Simulated assay, not measured.
Amino acid sequence: MVKPRKSATGPHRRSWLRGAPPPRWVRVLPVLLLVGVGAASLTESAPLDIGFLLGAVPPLAVLAYGPLATAFLGAATIGLLTIPFFHLNQPGNTDLFTLGFVATLSVFVSFVRGRRDEQLDLERTVAETAQRAIVPDVQQRVGPVRCASLYRAAERGTLVGGDFFDVRPGPHGVRAVHGDVQGHGLSAVATVASVLGAFREAVLDDVDAEAIAARLDRRLVVDSARTEHAELFATAVFLDFMPHGREVRVLACGHPPPVLLRGGTVSILEPDPGPPLGLGLADVMPGTAATVSLLPGDLLLLASDGVLETRDASGAFYPFVERLARMTGVGLDRLPDEIWADLSRFAPKIQDDVTLLILTLDASGPG
């Protein structure tokens, strides 16, 4: 079962001014204004000079209604002005012609807005589908490994940035990767797609983390050669879960090492670091994977620079390990959201991609 990726919250949430459906108060406002003017006119026996307020009804209707509803509200506005029963000052011909023109123009604008919204919705759906194909949601279980993840892209309106992660089964065990390519936002998506494509192929062929790292390094070197001054590189952590037993091999290539949550303690694993990928050094001076024995209930947490290098208003870095020590009792499924909520409270503005990948070995389950 795949856990759907949650939409971003806080500053990343798409507002109605950026394409989301309008809130209820926007839909109610033109109707409320129309009813309010009509009700106010009936409470007074003398004509009221408030008919000018009705000129705002058709433009307000454009924000939330289609052409038919906008036309109906425009006709109701003209009717309210011209029916003597409502005790409004009788408008002149110029006022009626002006209001009729505004209502007609509002219907046309509503029609154009509706067509544009349909096109934007289609383009957004295509873009989201393409981005989810690049970095799909991680399954809750991959073989004996249970997984939880979080992805918050820095660039507003996107699902994918410069961070990446994936967990895949293969003939040599379950393999996981978590990394960060040069840059972030849409400009880094092509590099992310190339890196993850090479990783998914390597899981089926290469026998260890060092070989996988070397393959991704060559992939980036080849991609850089196609573009002048490209200088593509990435940092990554690779995890090899052994097919049998409770051991995992950890290889860090220029990326922050994993954090181990064991009981009520938090510790940082320190494997022999390898060079970042894309520099052509993986075959020359590869890092050495460290073997870690896992106990039941141990959690391995991989976090991006967007977590570790986030600063508060005073410029202090987010104390990740210290904050994580307070969350050791939180379950695997809730932990990513707890960390994100704590990070959002700590920093006034998060400007980098934020990704978390949390893994635990659970050989008792299916797979």
Score class of each variant (00 low, 15 high):
P275M: 08
A69L: 11
P319K: 03
A71C: 05
M1G: 15
Q131K: 07
L302I: 14
S41P: 08
R219S: 11
G143C: 00
L63C: 14
G287M: 04
G329C: 07
G179Y: 03
W340P: 01
S110N: 06
R14T: 13
P4Y: 02
F320C: 10
D208T: 12
L17C: 09
P67I: 15
L29P: 00
L99E: 00
L122T: 13
A20T: 06
R200D: 02
H229N: 14
A303C: 09
P336F: 05
P276K: 10
H184V: 12
V2G: 14
L239H: 10
C147P: 01
G365S: 08
F164M: 06
A193C: 08
R249G: 09
G331V: 11
V354L: 00
R18H: 15
V181L: 10
G278K: 13
R18V: 12
A347W: 03
G36L: 01
P91K: 03
L357S: 12
D272M: 09
R323A: 10
A202T: 07
G162H: 01
V266Q: 07
R13E: 08
T82P: 02
L302N: 06
P91V: 04
F233P: 10
W25E: 07
L300Y: 03
L301I: 14
A56Q: 00
S149R: 00
E338L: 07
T235Q: 12
S45K: 07
G185C: 03
R218T: 14
R345Q: 09
A69V: 15
A148E: 02
V321G: 15
L300A: 11
A130P: 01
G183Q: 04
Q131T: 11
V167A: 12
A209Y: 11
G367Y: 04
A64L: 11
I78P: 00
V203N: 02
V181N: 15
D206A: 14
S314L: 13
L343S: 01
D95H: 02
E118T: 14
L34A: 01
L53S: 08
A190F: 09
V195S: 01
C147A: 02
S314V: 15
G19P: 03
L260M: 04
E309T: 15
A127L: 09
G297N: 03
D362E: 04
E309C: 08
L32A: 12
P256I: 15
G306L: 07
L277S: 08
R249Y: 06
L88C: 05
A303V: 11
L239K: 08
P169V: 13
R124H: 04
I83K: 00
E309L: 13
V126C: 11
F72I: 15
V203F: 05
S314D: 11
S110I: 10
V250P: 04
G179P: 09
L301N: 10
G38Q: 06
H229L: 10
V203G: 06
S187N: 09
V26F: 02
A213P: 10
L220R: 00
A133R: 01
G38N: 09
G143M: 00
R326F: 09
P4Q: 06
R13W: 13
E338Q: 08
F111K: 14
A130M: 05
P275T: 15
A76M: 07
A363F: 04
P275H: 12
T288Y: 12
T191M: 12
P59E: 02
S110D: 06
L80E: 04
A40K: 09
D333P: 01
